[in-house]
Amino acid sequence: MAKRIELNVDGKAHTIDADPDMPLLYALRDDLGLRNPKFGCGLAQCGACTVLVDGQPVRSCVTPVDSLGKSKVTTMGGLVKDGKPHKVQEAFIAEQVPQCGYCMNGWVMTTVALLDKTPKPTDAQIEDALTGLKCRCATHASIMRAVRRAAQA
């Protein structure tokens, strides 16, 4: 049965009526009309739906919408502050990373969390953080350049 659920997304409070078991992804896309997080697998295997929950990368496709409490959700679009993109977005843009770009949420949001904790990661640390994310266009070379560039910024 639908339940009233409060969400804090990209700095804004929202109230929705939803099935508590519904994954957060559908609240973001369908109820709030956000277009950044993507449905890739619904199985937490690819990362296309990744958002930050209190700064931690989370796969919104398997996160029940009623499990968030007062946590702050940030989507890729929400990284833009006062019209200025996040340095990770800027680096991915400068390196022209995406081909289809459908996977970008996973790589960008996970990199944001990585650089928060480890501002100057080694290649091995970057790989450790990003392993498991999928990019079918196989832009891995560009992704590595972009993460290194963001760490230098």
């Binding site: 009309g33 956000l34 277009r35 950044n36 993507k38 449905f39 989507t75 890729m76 679009g77 833009v80 993109p85 977005q89 991915f92 843009i93 022209q96 990373v97 995406p98 770009g101 459908y102 970008m104 960008v108």
Partner: peptide, 21 residues
């Protein structure tokens, strides 16, 4: 010459087919 679809794909400012409503 630079790509033209990179910025919106990173900022989430335009529609993929999945976003059409």
């Amino acid at each position: 010459a630079p790509r033209r679809d990179v910025e919106w794909k990173l900022l989430g400012t335009d529609d993929y087919v999945t976003d059409i409503k």
